[in-house]
Design a protein around this nucleic acid. Sequence first.
DNA 1: CGTATGACGTGCA
DNA 2: GTGCACGCCATAC
Length: 83
Amino acid sequence: MSEFAKKVLTAAKRIPRGQTRSYKEVAVAIGQSRAYRAVASVLAKNIDKTVPCHRVIKSDGSLGGYNGLRGEKEELLRREKIS
DNA sequence: CGTATGACGTGCA
DNA sequence: GTGCACGCCATAC
């Protein structure tokens, strides 16, 4: 796994439960603020269960994609946020 | 090695 | 406020 991907996954793991971070914020967190595109690509191809990638959303607050694991990103996030 | 694609973001109409 | 087009980085083919 590339270091970049590792950083992305780590950043995602650092996201507190009940909260969300935008792809751009994650990119900035790993030191590559302009790689938010790559962040999305990495997360898309690396569906790691150890990573709460469902907490990573778009900057405007939209859920974005999240396809692989459940497909119920909305409900999952909602449950975490409300709790 | 070069081209195309994607869970995006920002700007302009 | 919504929609379209361009730009960005890394990965896949």
